[in-house]
């Protein structure tokens, strides 16, 4: 199975903008792979809160890299700023695009009409009004209802794009991947190694780490681990004060404070799932 991920490159600042996924089916697929991401769009009927949000789903760089490495994602690269290109492609294809959207709307309207008419009919039936003697009254009623339906037709703003496929693509995939690797650094290795142990990882700064790790889907499980930024296993010192503070925080929020780094270089002949990182956890003793 493959998910398409659009990547926006900002060449001027040499940056890769966060990767977003708009298609709900893709999001489902990703979740099955243990990539949960963070939803960031307003959820329409509950638009005054931030706990439940809708598409787009925002991915971490590590997640995108992992999907790419495993072959689960196809990358489509676009150069920012894109507005000029978008405008010109829209102009070129305006008739086609307009027809597609008009058609989609018509289909939607038609099914809305059908559904609402059917609902209305059932309501009348339940009230026992669909008898021969009530024919005139019900006919008028149905007519009125049709008017109501017309004026309450819902126009959808689609989530996924019909235009992006027309835009000019960039071919710098290798550059993008190598930039992602260099941005993530060793954090990608520990991400991958934890992922291979079937953890689900999410951003963890508010809990005092780079990631938090769930033993499964976050909808069902609490996260157990707060994973720190990777360090050089052999050379980096660990600041004792940070270790104390971090492990104390771990005790408070009931997550283990975990630190790790790359212990061995990955052998080319090794099987994919072998771990090159080593992890340690620290917790306050005597808290009971």
């Amino acid at each position: 199975m493959s998910v398409t991920i659009h990547i926006l490159l900002n060449k001027a600042a040499d940056e890769i903008v966060s990767q977003l996924v708009f298609d709900v089916e893709d999001i489902k697929k990703l979740r099955k792979l243990g990539i949960c991401g963070i939803l960031m769009g307003t959820l329409p009927p509950a638009s005054q809160q931030n706990v439940f949000l809708s598409v787009p789903l925002r991915l971490m760089m590590e997640e995108t890299l992992w999907l790419y490495e495993k072959g689960y994602a196809k990358l489509v690269l676009l150069n920012s700023p894109i507005d000029a290109n978008l405008a010109s492609k829209v102009h070129e294809n305006s008739v086609k695009l307009s027809n597609i959207s008009v058609e989609a709307n018509q289909k939607s309207f038609e099914s809305q009409r059908q559904y609402k008419t059917e609902q209305h009919r059932r309501k009348l039936e339940a009230l026992g009004l669909l008898t021969a003697e009530n024919n005139d009254k019900t006919a008028k009623d149905i007519q009125n209802n049709q008017k109501l339906i017309e004026s309450s037709l819902f126009v959808e703003i689609p989530n996924s794009s019909r235009i992006l496929s027309l835009l000019d693509k960039s071919t710098d995939e290798k550059d993008v991947i190598s930039k992602l690797y260099s941005n993530c650094g060793q954090n990608y290795h520990i991400f991958r190694d934890l992922k291979n142990q079937n953890y689900v990882l999410a951003p963890g700064a508010r809990f005092g780490g780079r990631f938090i790790a769930y033993p499964g889907d976050p909808l069902r499980f609490h996260s157990h681990l707060t994973v720190q930024n990777a360090i050089d296993y052999y050379n980096d010192p660990i600041d004792l004060l940070s270790l104390i503070g971090g492990s104390r925080l771990g005790t408070t929020v009931k997550k283990l404070w975990v630190i790790g780094g790359i212990k061995s270089e990955k052998d080319e002949t090794q099987v994919d799932n072998s771990s090159t990182s080593s992890f340690y956890s620290v917790e306050w003793a005597g808290f009971g």
């Binding site: 659009h6 926006l8 900002n10 001027a12 600042a13 940056e15 890769i16 903008v17 966060s18 977003l20 708009f22 769009g41 598409v55 787009p56 676009l78 920012s80 700023p81 894109i82 507005d83 978008l86 405008a87 829209v90 102009h91 305006s94 008739v95 695009l97 307009s98 959207s101 703003i157 689609p158 989530n159 996924s160 794009s161 019909r162 235009i163 992006l164």
Partner: peptide
């Protein structure tokens, strides 16, 4: 929407997000 000479082309949410210039 985005306007061309004669037609109004509806934009999707994804189109809007792609128009953000940078991170």
């Amino acid at each position: 929407f985005i306007k061309t000479e004669e037609l109004d082309i509806p934009l999707s949410i994804q189109d809007l997000y792609v128009l953000f210039k940078d991170q």
